[in-house]
Design a protein around this nucleic acid. Structure first.
Lengths: 354, 354
DNA sequence: CTTGACAACCAAAACGTTTTGGGTAATAAT
DNA sequence: ATTATTACCCAAAACGTTTTGGTTGTCAAG
């Protein structure tokens, strides 16, 4: 590969002049510049990115480093999200550096490495935990970032984020179920290790309250993950006398709903919206949701707008700009939670299961 | 961020010693090493990646730079592929640098930049064209790469690749259709700008030949892309007298099949496997394939094994090894076409449409 | 005839590593 | 008593840029 020296030699000028000519400085004669540009093209010169970023220049790359949890159930969502993020990056002329993070390595380590190492200009954070160590870390390292998700203490958040309003979403589902005649609505929650899980659960509680229903701990199952845990949590609910048994079950995500649909028949129940059936809902609208038998009623994550806004925000932060154009006005289903803090509404997709 | 100098100063040794201690060289005293390691940890030191790769060290990153064509129909496949590739990279402890390539910029440029610029150790090439300029380019730049797909002139290929055997796949579909009683089988081909498209078409021809059927140019439509072009290509076929009209239509990809399913009713036909219906097949098994009405019979791309093999190969090449462990024996549906050249078989998924 | 301004250029430092080609002192071999 | 050998360490060069802080020469104004 040709270096800046090769060009300098061929042009009979110093490397300083070559650099300045190529970077559009005004203190180089127009003729000289044209000659240099020509030579650079002939030699097929491209500046070495490593050397460049060693000088503190932009890398035109942003990082996405999602956590990989043991149960790979999040995979379909991860794939979709990564793909859309790549497309969004393309629109900003950025490359996307995808580094998966397993539980083998220390989280801090990875992010420190990313931040201190001159490989990227900014970071997209996902899989936010209730108290996420990465946020103060990136802040202290002065690495631009935007989070997809919020840690707890909503009113005190100072960092930029985009989140999907799981609380409002689940509340909406509960309201929908109530409006279709359900009064005993159960909730299946995944583990609360990630922040969104508790948020959705809060939505369930709010939904009940708004519908004038009272919480019943017998209709609540926490910390579920696989089909087995769903089955054991479900049994006592379904063993209740008919008048106390749930007529609808809200699952915290599509995977739990999937397991639910598999388990219900084994206990002699069928899922669906008809009288005598148990209504079932999910969250995410993963690709398989419409496949299920019955097709799953669920809340769809607005992945495309999420990624668009994430990138608009991140680019604005990197460039030290005030507010990205796409956010001048809160669109439909888009709330400006704070400066550079955006909340998006999930969409209720009604199918046969509820 | 702490640099190697900070450590050297604190430890009272030279930066050389720090570097060698941290990189496991044998010419540093065990006590000294332990002290240095300790200090590095205390200072949360991580070597600067840019400086490192400027020295010619590995970046532990590989690039994936797919072409973005105007009609974004390839998007679902792209998303799936990118996600799976990221997962495969993770297993090799590599990061994946995703750079989409639009038609705005010169292809050569992007790849030169990637290759000469010290950002990645290797490249995954996709969207191979019949004569792909990127292949000699990367070869001349001595940048390790593996292609997903083959350019033409199959017997003369010298570069490492993984490909899905579109020819055999489509031939299989034709054989299947023939075995279910079809004798007039049409083919809808996408543009031949990418190599796989012609490969699949060749499969159609081979399938006909093996079934003892003779090609009929009236049953062939080339260069299709959108619903409109499918409609105009279809009209003359369906206007044929009944005895010459196709009873089955093979589409070169799922998108064409999708359009086909939309267009057929408009001409008064229905798609399906029942007598009187027109059988329809696709290729790829995109997520929506099983949704369609009727559900699409198609050939499934083995994306996961494709990505696994791509990465095993690329890592072996980067490390200058002979053959990755995963390829010691040709598994089921896996042919060793040549050294570091692998052919995978697509799987026929029979659904309601044929 | 000086002074100042300006256009055009450049040498050297800096960025943070790794590698090269040593050096020194202690111990072992002759 | 000299010579190898070994263990441990280091200064300086190298990687390819950008930036800093100049210098030089030309021309217009005083």
């Amino acid at each position: 590969m040709a270096t800046i020296f090769d060009i300098a030699k061929k042009a009979g000028v110093s490397i300083t002049t070559v650099s300045r000519a190529l970077n559009g400085y005004s203190d180089v004669n127009e003729n000289t510049r044209q000659m240099i540009v020509q030579i650079a093209e002939d030699l097929k010169y491209y500046p070495n990115a490593a050397a460049r970023s060693l000088q503190g220049k932009k890398t035109n790359t942003i990082a996405f480093a999602p956590l990989l949890n043991d149960h790979l159930e999040a995979e379909p969502f991860f794939k979709e999200f990564t793909g859309v993020l790549a497309l969004a990056s393309f629109k900003h002329d950025l490359s996307l550096l995808v580094t998966l993070v397993g539980q083998n390595r220390n989280l801090q380590e990875i992010y420190r490495e990313l931040a201190g190492t001159g490989r990227v200009d900014g970071v997209i954070l996902a899989d936010i935990k209730p108290q996420d160590e990465r946020i103060p870390l990136l802040q202290s390292l002065k690495m631009p970032f935007v989070a997809f998700g919020r840690s707890i203490d909503y009113d005190r958040l100072t960092y930029p984020f985009v989140d999907v309003d799981g609380k409002a979403g689940v509340a909406k589902v509960v309201a929908y179920l109530h409006s279709t005649g359900h009064h005993r609505i159960a909730y299946l929650a995944e583990s609360f290790t990630l922040a969104y899980a508790r948020d959705r659960y809060e939505g369930y509680r709010q939904g009940l309250k708004e519908a004038g229903l009272v919480e019943d701990t017998r209709l609540l199952a926490l910390n579920l993950q696989n089909e087995e845990s769903v089955a054991t949590a479900l049994k006592p609910m379904l063993d209740l006398p008919e008048a106390e048994r749930p007529t609808a079950i809200v699952a915290g995500n599509d995977y739990l709903a999937l397991h639910l649909l598999e388990v219900l028949p084994k206990f002699g129940f069928t899922a669906g919206r008809e009288p005598g059936q148990i209504a079932v809902t999910g969250f995410d609208d993963l690709p398989f949701a419409s496949f299920l038998q019955p097709a799953l009623t669920t809340l769809r994550q607005p992945i495309t707008s999420t990624c668009t806004v994430l990138l608009d925000l991140l680019v604005a932060i990197i460039k030290n700009q005030d507010k990205p154009a796409s956010l001048l006005n809160s669109g439909p289903g888009l709330t400006l939670f704070g400066p550079k803090q955006v909340l998006l509404q999930p969409e209720l997709i009604v199918r046969a299961s509820a």
